[in-house]
Simulated scan of single mutants.
Amino acid sequence: MAKKREPLNRRAYLKAAGASGVALTTLAGCLEDAGNGDDDADAGNGNGDDTDDGNGDDASDEDTGNGDDTEDNQIIAGTAPGFEPFEMTRDGELVGFDIDHLEAVVEETDYELVEWEEYEFDSLIPALENERIDVIAAAMTITEEREESIAFSDPYYSADQSVLVETGAGFEPESLEDLEGSQVGAQSGTTGEGIVQDELIDEGLIEDDDYTSYDNYVYAIQDLERGLIDAIIIDEPVGNSFQDDHEVEVAFTYETDEQYGLGIRQGDDDLQAALNEGIAAVEESSEYDEITQEWFGE
């Protein structure tokens, strides 16, 4: 779990200091008093089988479904650090584009973001379905397969995939076909892993044993720098970020035109509508550009 944090204080500081100059090590952590989860109070934003937006005025641990809206507007967010610059841990603090963006979006709603939980990427959807978290903010691509399990907000970011190789290793692929016979890595549950399966393994370019699945792209980068694998397939902005800080480089970009959305439980219509309104409000203001400039320099 990330450290305790005060999201609203962070946003006020960002606006006061300007997005490009804020010291981000003060931004992260979690509050432990969320009224949500398996054994906490129901947040009343679509969790459970019989709850709605009208439960709980006494911070109790019971699913009463009555009272005013003391707790029913509190939400817990889940993310997967190690995906620079969207979400990562610096000096024990949870920071990144998705962290700043979700906090800005929620501030435009009647909801209160009270806690961040950290998971491996492929554990986020189960955590959402099991009501341990209320929203996923983890550069998650909107796909038909995922929409069978969860709902998504409107898109908030578009990206393609990049193929990373070790700098100076002499391997210079220009297309997926050039990866034939190579040792390839990707993060479990990501679009990159899907491309490995569909475009490389299923097409006979590599064998199952040629693919290494990682819980986190940080481990994949380490193996790439050590020469243990030949290439990584990764989201383009994340690949660019690793290229800046490690002995790896982008060999080529594979266009997918994928879009990221915030993950929400199916049937949580009120929260979904509120987040969509918040996304639109942030994009229409200068804040989206400020957050983008802060993390991507664009």
Rank of each mutant, 00 (worst) to 15 (best):
G46Q: 06
P126F: 00
D68V: 05
Y260F: 15
E107D: 14
E225W: 06
E103H: 10
N66R: 13
S123R: 14
V218N: 15
E32P: 12
L24F: 12
R5Q: 10
S20K: 10
D245H: 03
E247I: 00
S285T: 02
A274W: 10
A2D: 08
A43Q: 09
Q183F: 14
S213M: 04
D230I: 06
A186R: 03
H246Y: 11
P126E: 05
I76M: 14
L124G: 02
E294S: 11
S285Y: 02
Y217D: 12
L8V: 13
Y111W: 01
L200I: 01
E107K: 03
V250E: 01
E129T: 11
W295A: 06
D223K: 04
E6T: 11
E258H: 12
R146C: 01
H101G: 03
V165G: 01
V184P: 15
Y211E: 02
I206Q: 04
T79R: 12
Q74S: 10
E120F: 10
A220H: 10
G170E: 05
D235R: 07
G168L: 09
Y157T: 02
V105F: 07
G65L: 04
G54A: 06
G37Q: 06
L27Q: 13
T292I: 08
E287D: 13
T141R: 08
E283M: 09
E129C: 03
G54H: 05
E108K: 11
E207N: 10
L113A: 05
Q259E: 14
R90M: 07
T143C: 01
R146Q: 02
E6A: 11
A34S: 13
G37L: 03
A231M: 03
G18M: 03
E148C: 01
T64M: 02
